[in-house]
Design a protein around this nucleic acid. Structure first.
Lengths: 197, 197
DNA sequence: CGGTAGGTTGAAATCGTTCAAGGAGGGTGG
DNA sequence: CCACCCTCCTTGAACGATTTCAACCTACCG
């Protein structure tokens, strides 16, 4: 199943085979928050619940492998292994969500944008250099979508990208393709490293 | 097992029997974000991972029922039901985390504080009136902790509480005990209602 | 050719932060 | 018992980061 387009109300389950799916929530006055991005081999869908209040939408061209709700719930009953893997992925998503809460709640706008770029570099680096210290990729989100992911305005996103470019941390082509020559320089702009035990 | 005090590095698993446990993450420069609160019957701990990078700390006096890591992992292997319930709770926590991401990323300071109070009213209303339209409870967090949960400063938290009090939405005694006479009035201050499908 | 969506940039306004001072309560040691 | 110190909380005033409003630019599409 292939789709480039619009919101899907998830009453079937899918695997993301390629592309990026964005998960979002909105307030009734139109404010929106993207609460997760699903990349290549992720599972998509919310078991045990009728109404999830989350919208799933293709951010780029996406290839899905989807199953009807009933089939998946049968599989889950039948295969212990299946439920186990689902638990593991859910725990991972929970970790990611909480990590992102730190970004939303405690980082400045420059740090937010840098953190987002770093996340992209790690997830969809099109140049296949593992740990070469550089990365190059197409942004899967528009400026507005990035702003909804980062909890800032699109103007602020734009300004911070311009700043990173001016400072030589990134290069931008077509407003969509980004090259990071030195990942470690980008990391320095993400705000204090992880924990402090 | 009872504890009132300090951070626990979770290498055992527990059930929270009473009280409130706060889960937090911090950046190396000291900025902190509370990424979750665990109330009465929640499970505590992170399976399948050595290093969780999350700190768990008692926010109030807490009663735990905790098991050694090995025992729980044995239980999980043995009991399908156990793993199933863990999956369900994890999915719930993921939903809550994402809901909170909307609060962190898209709500104003007044809305954040109102949203927090509403959450408290729903989770630890000490007066046992279900849906009576009012609530009364002790705040389980200090102003600083609230600010770390909401992604704002403690001064802003304080000011917003004062404002809610001045507007007659809440009453405050001892800076810790809060009474909400009209829940629905509080709800109006939480920013646009849920979704918009 | 317009028209539209996405993006950039500037200037002014605003919201929340920062800095600073002071109050209220609780525990401790003289 | 009192004085002191600490933590938590509140409040004010100035500052500054981000938003808001507005203009313009580009690419793409009908």
């Amino acid at each position: 199943m292939e789709l480039t387009g619009e919101a899907q109300n998830v009453d079937s389950y899918s695997n993301v085979l390629s592309g990026v799916v964005k998960l979002s929530k909105s307030l009734s006055d139109g404010r929106q928050q993207i609460v997760g991005l699903q990349f290549a081999p992720d599972f998509l869908g919310r078991p045990f619940k009728v109404e999830s209040s989350i919208n799933a939408e293709a951010a780029t061209a996406v290839t899905l492998c989807s199953f009807p709700r009933a089939a998946v719930e049968r599989m889950m009953k039948a295969s212990r292994e299946f439920e186990h893997r689902l638990l593991k992925q859910t725990l991972n998503e929970l970790d990611e969500a909480r990590e992102w809460m730190v970004t939303l709640g405690r980082k400045t706008a420059p740090e937010k944008v840098a953190t987002f770029l770093l996340m992209m570099a790690r997830n969809i680096d099109s140049s296949l250099d593992a740990a070469s210290g550089s990365a190059s990729f197409d942004l899967p989100l528009t400026r507005v979508e990035m702003s909804d992911f980062l909890g800032i305005t699109n103007e602020t996103v734009s300004r911070q990208l311009t700043r990173l470019r001016a400072d030589g941390v990134i290069r931008i082509e077509n407003a969509r393709h980004v090259t990071v020559d030195s990942i470690s320089r980008l990391e320095k702009r993400c705000g204090g490293g992880r924990e402090r035990p």
